[in-house]
Structures are given as structure tokens and as C-alpha cells.
Design a protein around this nucleic acid. Structure first.
Lengths: 195, 195
DNA sequence: CAAAAAACATACCAGATAGTATTTTATGTC
DNA sequence: GACATAAAATACTATCTGGTATGTTTTTTG
């Protein structure tokens, strides 16, 4: 990896840290470059403008992170319902990077940017759709195995679970991580009723 | 109501409209007063600063609106589970003010402001706690009536429903109102399983 | 090693932003 | 109707913001 490519992702990483905590619009370019050892010249050499940097951040950092946190745990699992629950438990309770008080970076960006920037919306939509499809496939697998009722609609269930995830992230900002176990308990009974 | 009091809530209402669509930090005072027929002098006569205006808006406009949308439908209902479902259906599908593409103003503010402003967090917390308590009481009523199983935990269920609400608001920004009916269907089966 | 191009630094700008200081206009009260 | 005060208008400022223009330093390549 070239030195230039390294400074590029260095900028993206520092930007990610700040945007995660403050939001995209509330994080200035000056603030980002201040945390790196770089200047504005470097920033605008690597990125056409702030929006392009944000989109690059979504595609190159956020999407892979969500892939690892959301999708991969679903794919390498035996019992599908357990897999969904454990994925959720892991991302909420064990993941040390996604802090409760700052929510989930993907959910945050959806909330902030979807209504005001169509490019952001589409980039974030891709991430969530990938997660949804992975969960659908997992549920379908469970139905094929006879572990899940035949009348269950994979698309609806996966949507409901993802909705719960973004919801509990929002609630977590308000009341802290205390709501995570509560949500997980109800999620568990909801999932059990699918069997 | 004095003329001064009228201009005060006029400012708050216009601010609410803009903040609902753009977020609090992304909405400037100049923008707010431009939509009114007023000037900065009026704004800073009625509010010490932007934050105080935001808090007044939450307390004087948002809290009553949420009270009407969330709490009152729960209180004047016979069957508790139906009441919860219908409240949710009403707020998602029938309410013409809370637009899908802009989500719910309360959820939006929680997402944006909770991590960065403790006063906002507390004001928003009150709103959500009031909603949660109303739903808890409704569920408890259902248990007393024998319409809901004895092992159901009102606190957990109401938390789960509110989490679902904020989650579907987030998802609605990403994919539009199409996700509302999907969420409602799964919510219905979830609620039915409590009986 | 010299030229060319890439990578980054510096200095600057125009517009926006929250907030202030001061002045003007309404409004109520005696 | 004079007077006090409330309500609002005007003019201004310091700071911040995204972005540009133009340098300077590396790095690559012939």
C-alpha cells in the first residue's frame, strides 16, 4: 500500500471517529485534519469535497464494518434463529467499538443524511439491504431445515429485526446501554415464536 | 394571549417545521426568522440563545404533540393490545403531519442531540418516559382484565414497542413509508402472542 | 540524476453563523 | 396624552465553514 493510500484511509478513519460521535454535518473538515497530522491541501487532494469523503467513508469503512458485524455471523451459523439472536447480542453487548452513547454509525447516518442527501441515502441503503438479504437467507435456511414455521415471511421478519436494531440504537442514546438487555429478551421471545 | 406570546410561539412553530426536516444544528437562526416576518431582535428578545429556543420547542410543542399522538389514544381504549396497535397504525399511516421521509421529530432529536447536549437529552427522555409509562399502564390494565398473559412484563413490552417505533421511523427515512405496513404486521403478531 | 508528476503545505476568501449593542417602535398605565 | 417599559428592528462582530489558488516538498520515472 502506497504512502498516499495510507494517508487517504488515515483521513477516512479519523473522519469516521468524529462523524460517529458528532454527526456528519456537525464535523468540520478543519476538525478532521486537526486530528491527523495533515493540512487542508492533503484533504482536498484526496477528496473532491466533503460529501465525496463521506461517501468514501461509508463505502470503504462503514460497509465492511457492518458486513463483519451483521452479515458474517449469520452466514456461519447452524441454527438460524440462534444465529440472529447471537449476532444481535454480540453487536450490542460485546462489540467494543460501537459505543452505546453514540449509537450505531450506520443508523446515525441514515437518520441524519437520508432526508437531505440522496447519494448518502443510496449508499446507506445498500448496506442495510445487504444485511436484510443475509438475514432473509438465514431465515429461509431455517424454514428449509424445518426449524422455522412455514407461514413465516423471511422478508418481513428480517425487516422487523433490523427495525428493532436501529430502534434500540436510538433508545440507547437516550437511556444508555441499559435498554439493550431488555430489547434482547423481547427479541428472543419474538424469535422463539417463529419456531 | 398577548401579541408577544403569539410571536413567541410563532417563532417556535416555524423553528419546529425547519428543525423537523433539517435537524437542530443544521437549522440556522437566520433561516428561522426568514420564514417568520421577524428579525433577530425578536428572536433574541424571546430566547436567550438557540439552545434555549430548542428546549422551549421540545417542551411547548413537541411534548404536547407526542402526548396527543402517543398517550391519549392509549388511555381511552377498551382492549389494550388493540389500543397499542391502533395507536401505532394511526401515528404511522394516518397522521398527516409526521411525514415518513422526515421521520418522527422526537426520534430525530434523540438521535441528533442526546449524545451532544445533556439538557436536550433530559427533555426528550421525559417525553419518551411519559409514553412508556402510559403504555405500561395500558398493558397492566390488560393483565388485570385477563386479556394479557400473567408472565408478560409490561416494562419490557412497552420498551420493545417504543424501540420498534423509533426503529421504523429510522427505516422509513431510508426506504420510505413502504416499511410501515410491514412493521405493523409483525407488531400485530408480536402483540397477539402476548394474549 | 534530472524532469515530471504526485502528494502535501500555506495562505487566502466569500459566505454563513450565533450572538451583541444599540436604536426604534408598540403597548399598556396613570 | 405623557411616560415607562415591553417588543422588535437594525447594524455590526468574531468566528467558523467549505473550498480555492498557489506554492513547496516528495516520489516516481526516463
Amino acid at each position: 500500500m502506497s504512502k498516499a493510500a495510507l494517508t487517504r484511509i488515515h483521513i477516512l478513519q479519523k473522519a469516521f471517529d468524529l462523524i460517529y460521535r458528532q454527526g456528519f454535518q456537525a464535523t468540520s473538515i478543519d476538525e478532521i485534519i486537526a486530528t491527523t497530522e495533515l493540512t487542508k491541501g492533503a484533504f482536498f487532494y484526496h477528496f473532491k469535497n466533503k460529501d465525496e469523503m463521506g461517501l468514501a467513508m461509508i463505502r470503504e469503512l462503514l460497509a465492511p464494518a457492518m458486513q463483519i458485524a451483521l452479515i458474517e455471523p449469520l452466514q456461519k451459523a447452524e441454527d438460524p434463529l440462534d444465529a440472529i439472536y447471537e449476532m444481535m447480542e454480540s453487536i450490542l453487548l460485546k462489540d467494543s467499538f460501537f459505543l452505546s452513547s453514540y449509537g450505531c454509525p450506520a443508523v446515525n447516518l441514515i437518520d441524519e443524511m437520508s432526508p437531505v442527501n440522496e447519494s448518502f441515502r443510496l449508499a446507506l441503503l445498500e448496506i442495510m439491504m445487504a444485511g436484510k438479504e443475509a438475514m432473509e437467507a438465514t431465515i429461509q435456511r431455517g424454514m428449509d431445515q424445518g426449524r422455522i414455521r412455514k407461514d413465516v415471511k423471511p422478508s418481513q421478519v428480517s425487516a422487523f429485526v433490523l427495525i428493532g436494531y436501529s430502534g434500540v440504537r436510538n433508545m440507547g442514546k437516550l437511556v444508555g446501554a441499559a435498554c439493550y438487555p431488555i430489547y434482547l429478551r423481547e427479541l428472543r421471545t419474538y424469535l422463539q415464536n417463529l419456531a
